[in-house]
Lab assay of single mutants.
Amino acid sequence: KKYKVVEVKENKDGTVELVVENENGEKKKITLSKEELDKLKAGDTVELK
C-alpha cells in the first residue's frame, strides 16, 4: 500500500514520528530513525507492507 506523509514530528530521542495516510483516508503513525527520514519530507509517498 502507498501512504502519503501528512505530518513529520521530531522526538527528543532522535527518532522521527510520521503520520501517513492512504487513499482511503486511513492514517497510520510510524516511527523512523533520523537516517531513514533523511530522504523523506511532507508530501512524499511511502510504501508500507
Rank of each mutant, 00 (worst) to 15 (best):
K34N: 07
L32V: 08
L32C: 10
K49P: 15
E17R: 05
E23D: 08
Y3R: 00
E47W: 06
K41E: 09
K27S: 07
E21D: 02
N11K: 06
V20K: 00
K1C: 15
V5M: 03
E26F: 13
K29A: 12
T15G: 03
E17K: 02
K49F: 03
N22Q: 03
E47P: 02
V16Y: 13
E10K: 05
L37T: 15
K49V: 15
I30R: 01
L37E: 03
E47G: 03
K39L: 09
G43P: 02
E36V: 10
L18H: 00
K1D: 02
D44W: 01
G25V: 00
L48C: 15
K4Y: 04
K2I: 09
K4A: 02
L40F: 15
T15H: 04
K28E: 08
V19G: 01
T15V: 04
L37V: 12
E21L: 08
L37P: 05
V8C: 14
K41N: 06
E26D: 09
K2Q: 05
A42T: 08
L48K: 09
N11Y: 09
D13T: 02
K27P: 05
E26Y: 13
L48H: 06
G43S: 05
K28S: 12
K12F: 10
E35L: 13
I30M: 12
E26N: 04
K41P: 04
L40K: 04
V46I: 14
E21N: 01
E23N: 04
L37G: 15
K49Y: 02
K12H: 11
K49E: 15
T45Y: 15
N22R: 04
E17Y: 15
G14R: 02
V20R: 00
E10L: 08
T15I: 05
L48N: 07
G43F: 03
K12Y: 11
D44R: 03
I30C: 11
K27T: 10
K2W: 11
G14I: 00
E23L: 06
K12T: 09
L32G: 13
K39M: 08
V16E: 00
Y3L: 02
Y3W: 10
E10Q: 07
E35G: 14
E21A: 08
K12A: 08
S33V: 09
E23T: 07
A42R: 07
L18M: 08
N11G: 06
G25Q: 03
N22H: 07
K49T: 15
D44I: 06
L40C: 09
K2E: 03
V46P: 08
V16D: 00
Y3S: 00
S33W: 15
Y3G: 00
V6E: 01
K41Y: 06
V16T: 05
K39F: 08
Y3K: 00
E21S: 06
I30L: 14
V20Y: 10
K34R: 14
K28P: 00
I30D: 00
E21T: 06
E26G: 06
E21W: 05
L40E: 01
A42W: 03
L32A: 06
K1G: 07
V6I: 10
N22V: 07
G43M: 04
L48R: 06
K39H: 11
I30Y: 14
K2N: 04
K29R: 14
T45H: 07
K49N: 15
Y3M: 02
V6Q: 03
E35T: 13
V19A: 03
G14Q: 02
K41T: 05
V19P: 00
L18N: 00
D38L: 13
V5T: 01
E36H: 15
I30P: 00
Y3E: 00
L40H: 07
T45Q: 03
V46E: 09
V5H: 01
K1P: 01
E26T: 07
L48M: 06
G43V: 04
V46G: 09
V8Y: 11
E35H: 14
K28Q: 11
S33E: 07
V5R: 00
G43E: 04
K4R: 12
N11W: 08
K1N: 07
V20T: 02
E21Q: 07
K49A: 15
G25Y: 04
N22F: 06
N22W: 09
T15Y: 10
K34Y: 12
L48A: 09
K4Q: 02
N11E: 05
T31H: 06
L48F: 05
V6P: 00
E7P: 00
D38H: 13
K29H: 13
G25P: 00
A42N: 10
I30N: 00
D44V: 05
K2C: 15
G25D: 01
K27W: 14
N22A: 13
L37I: 13
K28M: 14
T31W: 14
E7I: 09
I30S: 01
K27Y: 13
K4M: 05
G25T: 01
K41I: 08
E36P: 12
V16A: 09
T31F: 12
V16L: 07
G14W: 01
N22M: 08
N11L: 10
N22K: 03
D38R: 11
E7D: 11
G25W: 01
E35R: 14
K12M: 09
K27G: 03
K28L: 15
K1Y: 10
V19K: 03
E10W: 10
K34L: 13
E36R: 13
N22T: 08
L37R: 13
T31I: 08
K34P: 05
Y3D: 00
V8F: 11
K1E: 05
E26P: 01
V8T: 06
E35A: 13
K2D: 01
T15S: 06
K9M: 08
L32S: 03
E36C: 14
K27R: 13
N24I: 09
N24L: 11
E35Y: 14
E7Y: 14
K34D: 04
V6F: 08
E17W: 14
K39Q: 09
E23M: 07
K1A: 09
N11D: 04
V46W: 03
K2A: 05
K12P: 12
V19L: 10
V6G: 01
D13K: 01
A42Q: 08
E10P: 06
L48Q: 08
K27N: 03
E36I: 12
E35W: 15
N24G: 08
D38P: 15
T45M: 08
L32N: 01
N11S: 06
D13Q: 02
D13L: 02
K27D: 01
T31A: 04
L48D: 12
K4F: 04
L40R: 04
A42C: 12
K29G: 06
L40Q: 03
N22L: 06
K29I: 13
V8K: 04
E21Y: 06
T15F: 07
T45I: 11
V19E: 05
K1M: 13
E17G: 06
E23C: 11
T31V: 09
I30Q: 01
K39A: 05
K27F: 13
V46S: 03
E10N: 09
E23S: 07
E23K: 04
L40D: 01
D44Y: 02
K1H: 07
E7S: 13
D13H: 03
V6L: 11
T45V: 11
V46H: 04
